[in-house]
Every structure is written in C-alpha cells, then in structure tokens.
Design a protein around this nucleic acid. Structure first.
Lengths: 250, 250
DNA sequence: CGCGGAATTGACGCACTTCAACACGTGTGG
DNA sequence: CCACACGTGTTGAAGTGCGTCAATTCCGCG
C-alpha cells in the first residue's frame, strides 16, 4: 500500500474515530489494502453518476468533491461537499443505482473500496461496523441541518451557517490556518449548495463583508466574527460529531 | 414478548429487509426481547427532547411521530415523519445529546431498545448490522430528497412530492387503501415540514385539488393522478429503498 | 493580447410571507 | 342546551426577499 494510502487511512481514522479508535480503524482498513484501488482524478471528473450501478465506495484523500443532483427543470442541487478525509458512495451500494452524482471540484486522489469488503468489515470488526454506522449517521445529521438551512433560514443566515460548518469540518481535518481556510468554491457552487442564485449569493456576501463577519480574498475565507455568526445562524457544531460519544465510548 | 411486540418486529423486518431477510431480522430482535421496554404514549408527547441524553433507540409500532427542531427565531422545522414500522433515536446514541426532538402526533406504542444492545447486534448478527446500516442510509436518502425539496422546488412541487413520498412509504407498510391513505396532519404540520406557511399550503392545496391531482377529505388523502404528480415533482421512489439491493442480495 | 469564466451591479417581476379577518367544527363548562 | 373558547381551515390585501434578465468589469490563462 502506498504512502498516500497510509495517509488516507490515518485521515479516515481521525475523521471517524477521534475519540479512541484511530489505530484499530486504520489497521483494519490496511489489513484489506490489497483489495483496494487507488485512483487520481482530475478536477471536474464525474466519479459517480446518478442512475448508474457501482460496487465500491470511496475514501477521499486530499481533494474536494460534491454530491449533487439535477432536476428536470435544469436546476442543480448540491447536497454535500466531500472534504479531504471523508468518504462517499455508500448509498450506491445499498440502492440499486446511485441516487446522486459525485464530481471532483479539485484534483483528488481516492481509494476505492470494493463493496463486498463491507461484508467482511461488518463480520470481522465491531469497531469498523461502528465506524460505518457512525459515518452514515453523521451524514444524516449534516443533511438534517441542510434541510433546516434551506427551508427556514434567510440567505444571510444560510451563508453564515455554511461558512461555519465548512470551517469546523476543515478544522477537524487539520486544514485551517487560524480562522482562515482555502475553499475552491465559486459563488455559483455556493448558490447551488444553498438553494440560491449566484447573483444573490454575491449580494449577500457583500453584506457579510461589510458587516465584518466574514472576509474573502480570492479562495481564502476568513471567519472574522465566529460568535456573531453562530448566534445569527443558530449554529451549534454538535451535529458535526465533534462530541460523538456512545459508539466509541469504551 | 407481547403480541404487539411481535407485530412490531414483523413490521420492522418488513421495513428493513423486504427482500430476503424478514425471519432472521425478526428472530434476532425477538431473541433480545427481554431487554426491551414497551411504552404507550399519548398524542402530543415528547419522546425525545433536543439536547437531552438518551440510551435507547425506538421502534414505532403503529403511530405517527415527527422529528423536529425549533430555531431561535421561533420557526419550527420538521425533518421527518416517523411512520408505523419505522425507527428513530439512533442519532441520540451516537451524539452526546439528541440533536432533534421527537413528538407523537397520534397515540403510539413504542419499543425502546437499549443502546448497548446495538453492540450486541453488531457483534452477533451480520444481518442486523446491515439492517442498522441500511436504515441509517435510507434516512440519509430521504433527507437528501428533503433538501432538494426545500431548496429547488416550488410550493406546488413540494406538496406533490410530499404526498407521493407519504403514499409510497405508507403503501410499503400496508397502510394504504387503493390510492388513498389516512394522514393525521394539519396544514400547519405540512407547512412546517416543507418550509412554507400554513396559509400558502392551504392555497396550494386548493390548486392541487382544482387540478385534479390530489383529493383530500378531512384526514383522508387520495392520489388522483400519480403520473402527473410524479412528473411535475421529479419523483422517483428509488430513494425510498423500494429496490434496495446489495446489502440483502444474498 | 484576447478569450472565457467568474464577480459585480442595476432594474424589474413574482412566489411566498405577513397581517388580518372570518367560517367551521368540536369540546368544555356554566 | 347554549355560550364560549380554541384549533383548524379559508380567503383577501399588501409587503418583501429572492429570482430573472441584462450589462459591465475583473481576472486567470492559453
């Protein structure tokens, strides 16, 4: 297994078992390493296409990807950004075909883990079973917040909440510097994620800048006033799994 | 274990393993029956309260419940309706405290399954592990559709999609009669679920009735034109797990 | 240099909200 | 048995946040 895979396994361990489990999770993934496939994909590549069948799920090492769907109206909705260290594609294993498409928005190196390995993981490792279950439940939690975002918050609140979530998730992956992070996002992508138009995102971003809450310099985002942002957008990071407990408590 | 628990176990089996697994799932749940608690709660009872800790998850036998959250603005967002045969509360086990509240909207009988039983289930049964994982992934899928609903569909499309989803979920639980079903919902609840106001739900419902797509008589809902509704709301039921495959394929 | 994608700004329209009033059924107490 | 409260449904009028359309500028890159 290449060194990049080892780094990926470490990141996976860190993401999904910050409490007590990193070594076990890591070694368990590594133990089956010979069955996995490494791939390096360019920016803008569709890794999963909605409606197709797949037999692997994916571990994302270092890139940004997004899960999305386009409606018959032509509108595109982004469900989720997949950050370094996170996984995707489990759904495609459960359902006959993938419900959503996944595309890279930066170059990315991935590890594909054959689906039937999940059986093995479930059979052999209690800890891995928990990790899988936990990652699915965390995804639910994020989507739950996303529902609230889309239906009950103003554009101003949505942007606030969005940047805070990104910041906390990137921070737990060690990808922040102070209160800043790099995000390869365009205003159009943000709009598609939050259910707005790029134009309105633009206007709202200007307000956030003027109000000294968020600063943006190209692709670099800085959280200027974490407190104010949290308050106005009902942000509480507990849903991100920062303090997940029970499954890994012992 | 009482007969109501047996019925519940059967419904759980049906919901989470429609393909090949009912007997196993059922017996595995029953095997641990002595550890579970049965409760009967009145309509309007909070079973879970956001922010509190819990050590059980719940199997809902015959009632309707909903998962919701209220923001500091006072707005309430319903994330999910929990129909007969479905479960809830797994999140509360993973996170330090429950992220959302769950309240009954009809009287309901529930079975509380201690959380540490999940460990046992994961250790002992490959099939149960799959069932747990699958139910979490299905929840994600529903929430994903809900995100799309809230951010990219008009009120008219949202209502259409909402009724279709309810219909299909209730049908798979055997709770439909022809193209009709009973739903203990008020317009306000629907509004809170779809991110609209009750007033606008009212107006939109009238349009749906006039357009001969949906009929409502009190609490009885009838899908008049399934085809037209599906088309206009991008409905495809694959995300509801109708055709889930891989995990239960063998 | 010139091209194309992204950001920015303005004017206008509309879907949905907000506020307000009223109708209807159901239960509860006088 | 009526009176009243209360929850739910229904309808109208006015306000607004965000979308749509259109034009201009900025910037990276071949």
């Amino acid at each position: 297994m290449s060194s990049i895979d080892r780094a990926a396994a470490q990141r996976f361990a860190k993401t999904f078992a910050p409490v007590t489990l990193p070594p076990l999770t890591q070694s368990a993934v590594l133990r089956h390493g010979h069955r996995t496939r490494s791939l390096h994909v360019a920016k803008g590549t569709d890794v999963l296409v909605a409606g197709n069948r797949y037999d692997s799920w994916y571990l994302n090492h270092n890139g940004w990807l997004m899960r999305y769907k386009v409606l018959h109206s032509g509108a595109r909705q982004i469900l989720d950004f997949i950050l370094p260290g996170e996984t995707f594609g489990l759904q495609a294993c459960v359902f006959r075909s993938s419900l959503y498409s996944v595309v890279t928005i930066t170059p990315a190196s991935l590890t594909a883990i054959p689906f039937d390995m999940i059986e093995t993981m479930l059979e052999q490792g209690l800890h891995l079973s928990k990790a899988l279950l936990w990652s699915a439940i965390c995804e639910s939690a994020r989507l739950g917040e996303h529902v609230i975002d889309s239906s009950r918050r103003s554009a101003y609140e949505r942007l606030s909440h969005f940047f805070l979530e990104l910041f906390v998730r990137l921070k737990s992956a060690g990808l922040t510097v102070g209160m800043s992070f790099e995000a390869p996002l365009t205003q159009e992508l943000i709009a598609d994620a939050l259910g707005l138009t790029a134009i309105h995102v633009n206007r709202t971003l200007r307000c956030l800048r003027q109000d000294k809450l968020v600063a943006m310099d190209g692709k670099k985002v800085t959280i200027v006033d974490f407190e104010a942002l949290s308050l106005l957008s009902d942000f509480e990071n507990s849903y991100l799994g920062e303090d997940a407990r029970a499954l890994f408590a012992r």
